[in-house]
Design a binder for these strands. Structure first.
Length: 865
RNA sequence: GGGCGCAUAGCUCAGUUGGGAGAGCGCCAGCUCGACAAGCUGGAGGUCACAGGUUCGAGCCCUGUUGCGCCCACCA
């Protein structure tokens, strides 16, 4: 060790993540450790495709948690020698990105329409080049070991080819089609959106009851609606076929107030006779249900509200041009004037809103592209049923399957400019349509000019191809051969349908295999107060601030420790715990590295009685430590493999803090200061294995400490992960040291109870056992062969009279313990007196109870006055 | 309307197949012990939401109730 580095170890009593992290990360990247060769079969390799963050995005806690999980598993497998790829990239995020750039334009007083499509798209690209890598840089801060050398983007050249290939093939199979259909129109983003991008919220509206006169009669049908302005588009009135009140009216007509249109009265099961009057106005142009009913009965479809949210010509001169909300007031006023408004009352109901823009959805009929899902879903259902794609926790498997079995056509076209422009060309002259991966020159039929479809594809259409498009599909690339299918996906449940399900369908349809073997659905980290973390609520916790404050390792540890299968509140204490652990490990390492005896040729020595060629004379505590570490490695590794990060972190924390630092280091300090060989070998080996085990979770501090370890050859990031080594297990050593620890604890507790001065060394005599040396040292007792009368007993240890101890405190303590024991004896006796317990409980449980009773009685006797 | 999840220490959460309730933080008391005061040692603190049931025995299994959260769904 050179002097400068040694000096650093000696002087730096606190671990400083800020000083370490940037430097270490640069070393990893320089080492090229994160960029694998495309070799070997996928089942031997490990690959993960990062859920691509939006280019507009900033790293939030969800990314940080997800990234911590993936990185833990990726790093563990890389260290195990698997050829490991973690694909990185970003998503063009159509609506979000377009909105950001439009906002910039607005600040300049411009609009995208003024700019024109081509110039606007150029502006977005320019924006992307400048700001789009922000989130990638933020992943680096987290320590994520992604392959930064081959970053992908859903709009890069190769990716577009994949998207067009998929579109063309699905079109040729007849799955993709164009239709006039009811869609969720988002007036905010000015585009259609899919069902999955709609959320419903409770809204208080007014329910209006309107009288529709029946033609040729003085009867009226009273219908109820919260959106009276849509009555202008009514084309029927429906009643339930079983409703006797209206049986005679079915087949007759109503007259639509204000408009005068004749509306057929139809019978349809959908109508609930219990609701209102049992008569339902039918507006196929502006209500999804009515649309269905309308198609069933062949009703006319009239649109009165346009994509701009204003009434169109169909609404009639009186209302055309008004925004829908104003039109509503005008229609109500007009109805009131005509005496058709029977009633109005407050009404709370759920209303669809756009998740993208927050605007209230305007259902309307428009010409859009759709993708039929039934055929794609069928195999995607099977692979999950057969666990070829395993979804954990189990309950999400059912959620996935339930949704897939009810899947409906997907509206894939968006009225945006930023995205994959749909690869369809129209000939206006002869009405031919061309779908192609490459733009056709001219119309093949009439040689006329072609015009490309204006719409772009839903962003999720391209995201669905992520696991294979990033690997070069549709080409048969070496990357695709080596890394597809990917190994696992960790994700938040909110994109289970939006993204995960669609990847499974597309993976099976195109490369022909599942996109990943495991899906782990992790918890959502809520704000500290239990609300959702959200920018608009101001409840977000910024991961980068946490990294600045506590270090990336601390944040990673904290997030993994607080993760769960259920939602959890963000816990500052867990992040702090991570920071404390990094500091603890740093200081323990200083103690070790500055005191061990080390020579090059003994670096791999393993003290263990089972390894006669090594150090047969190793002390029992050395064997205890290595055995405990071995158990911890096995358990932590298993937990990481089953995505149980919370318990993995807790176990490794407990091992380092309690067993390594609180016990082993304290026990061996005298030997360590003597630079004793066995203890040095034990500590160097243990430290190496601990650093390896913890590295996937806390990569920076472990790498930094490793840089001071005398056995170091190369970076820890590519050092061997500690493999299970059964020869290090030593149950006898574990049992023996455990007894010593127990005794030390009881003796310390006894001292505290009788308020013995902290620095005093008390006289004692051990009977029937020979306590290990450390017991007396750590508990501050001097064991004597003879000595005077005992004044108290702690297990096999008799404590002797001493001027340091208050006799009254001892007496009180003894009486308290006797009372405790008497109570335990009563409890055990009662239990054993219960014949049904003795008869029916398993023999070993009863036997255990008897043993306890004996123990309590023996101790009570020992303490008898 | 359907489905799922959650109620355990002051706080945030663990509790695997039923067999004397745990962690971290916080709190109390004591410690400048040659790594770490972001430390060390000891301690207090819980009718496991409520009510029934099954069982020799229930935080855990069953039924119901209450409260909170999430997802799905076309009742105007």
């Amino acid at each position: 060790m050179d002097d400068v580095r040694r000096k650093k170890l000696e002087e730096q009593t606190r671990y400083e993540p800020a000083e370490v992290e940037g430097r270490i990360f640069a070393e990893w990247v320089e080492g090229g450790y994160f960029h694998p060769q495309a070799e070997g079969p996928p089942e031997e390799n490990l690959s993960v495709a990062i859920p691509p963050p939006n280019v507009t995005g900033a790293l939030h806690m969800g990314h940080a948690l997800n990234g911590s999980m993936q990185d833990a598993l990726v790093r563990m497998n890389r260290m195990r020698g698997r050829n490991t790829l973690w694909t990185l990239g970003t998503d063009h995020a159509g609506i979000a990105t377009q909105a950001v750039v439009e906002k910039m334009l607005a600040a300049e007083g411009a609009t995208r329409q003024e700019l024109g499509r081509e110039a606007f798209v150029e502006r977005v690209w320019a924006w992307k080049e400048e700001y789009g890598s922000r989130i990638v840089e933020q992943y680096k801060r987290l320590g994520a070991s992604c392959d930064y050398e081959s970053e992908r983007f859903t709009l890069d050249e190769g990716y577009v080819r994949a998207v067009y290939r998929v579109f063309k093939r699905l079109y040729d199979k007849g799955y993709i089609y164009r239709d006039h259909y009811m869609v969720n129109w988002d007036p905010g983003s000015h585009s259609a959106i899919s069902d999955l991008e709609v959320e419903s919220r409770e809204v208080e509206d007014t329910l209006y009851s309107i009288d529709y006169p029946v033609e040729g009669s003085d009867r009226v049908l009273t219908v109820a609606t919260v959106r009276p302005e849509t009555m202008l588009a009514d084309t029927a009135v429906a009643v339930n076929p079983g409703d006797e009140r209206y049986a005679d009216l079915v087949g007759k007509h109503c007259v639509l107030p204000l408009v005068g249109r004749r509306l057929p009265i139809v019978a349809d099961e959908h109508v609930d006779p219990e609701f209102g009057t049992g008569a339902l106005k039918i507006t196929p142009g502006h209500d999804p249900n009515d649309f269905e009913i309308g198609r069933k009965h062949g009703l006319e479809e009239i649109g009165v509200i346009g994509p701009d949210g204003r009434m169109n010509e169909g609404a009639g001169e009186r209302f055309a041009g008004l925004p829908a909300a104003e039109a509503q007031e005008a229609v109500v006023a007009a109805l009131r004037e005509e005496g058709r408004l029977r009633d109005e009352e407050p009404y709370v109901h759920s209303v669809p809103f756009s998740e993208r823009s927050g605007a209230r959805i305007e259902p309307l009929i428009s010409l859009q592209w759709f993708c039929r899902m039934d055929e794609l879903a069928a195999p995607a259902i099977e692979v999950v049923e057969r666990d070829e794609v395993r979804i954990a926790p189990e309950r999400w498997k059912r959620v996935y399957l339930d949704w897939m079995r009810e899947i409906r056509p997907w509206c894939i076209s968006r009225q945006l400019w930023w995205g994959h422009r749909i690869p369809v060309w129209y000939c206006d002259a002869c009405e031919e349509t061309y779908v192609a991966e490459q733009p056709p020159e001219r119309c093949g039929a009439c040689d006329g000019p072609l015009r490309q479809e204006e719409d772009v594809l839903d962003t999720w259409f391209s995201s669905a191809l992520w696991p294979f498009a990033t690997l070069g599909w549709p080409d048969e690339t070496p990357e695709l051969r080596a890394f597809y299918p990917t190994s696992f996906l960790t994700t938040a449940r909110e994109i289970l349908f939006l993204w995960v399900a669609r990847m499974v369908m597309m993976g099976l349809e195109f490369p022909g295999d599942v996109p990943f073997r495991d899906v782990y659905v992790h918890s959502v980290i809520q704000a500290r107060d239990g609300r959702r973390m959200s920018k608009s609520l101001g409840t977000g916790v910024d991961p980068l601030e946490e990294i600045d404050r506590h270090g990336a390792d601390a944040l990673r540890f904290g997030l993994l420790a607080m993760s769960s299968t259920q939602d959890v509140r963000f816990s500052d204490a867990k992040v702090q715990q991570g920071a404390d652990l990094a500091n603890k490990l740093w200081n323990a390492s200083r103690l070790i590295l500055l005191n061990v005896k080390f020579e090059q040729n003994q670096s791999r020595r393993v003290p263990n009685k089972a390894r006669q060629d090594r150090v047969p004379a190793a002390a029992v505590e050395d064997r205890w430590l290595l055995s405990r570490l071995e158990a911890t490695i096995g358990s932590v590794t298993a937990k990481l493999e089953e995505y149980d990060f919370a318990h993995a972190t807790q176990e490794i924390y407990a091992f380092i803090w309690s067993e390594l630092c609180d016990w082993y280091l304290e026990i061996v300090k005298p030997r360590l200061y003597d630079r004793e060989e066995d203890v040095s070998a034990t500590l160097l080996l243990a430290l190496e294995r601990v650093l390896g085990l913890l590295h996937p979770i806390m990569p920076f501090v472990t790498e930094e400490i490793w840089s001071h370890h005398p056995s170091r050859q190369g970076h820890l990031a590519v050092h061997a992960f500690p493999e299970p080594d059964g020869s290090l297990r030593d149950p006898e050593a574990e049992a023996e040291v455990r007894l010593g620890i127990e005794l030390t604890r009881r003796l310390r507790a006894w001292r505290d109870l009788v308020e013995a001065p902290a620095a005093s060394v008390l006289p004692a005599r051990a009977e029937g056992i020979e306590p290990r040396e450390f017991v007396g040292r750590l508990a501050r007792f001097e064991f004597e062969r003879n000595g005077g009368d005992p004044i108290a007993a702690v297990g096999p240890v008799k404590i002797l009279a001493s001027t340091e101890i208050d006799a009254e405190a001892v007496a009180a303590r003894l009486e308290a313990r006797r009372e405790e024991l008497r109570s335990e004896v009563r409890r055990a006796e009662g239990k054993l007196a219960n014949e049904r317990f003795v008869e029916r409980a398993p023999a070993e449980v009863v036997e255990e109870e008897r043993r306890k009773l004996e123990r309590y009685r023996a101790e009570l006797e020992e303490l008898a006055e």
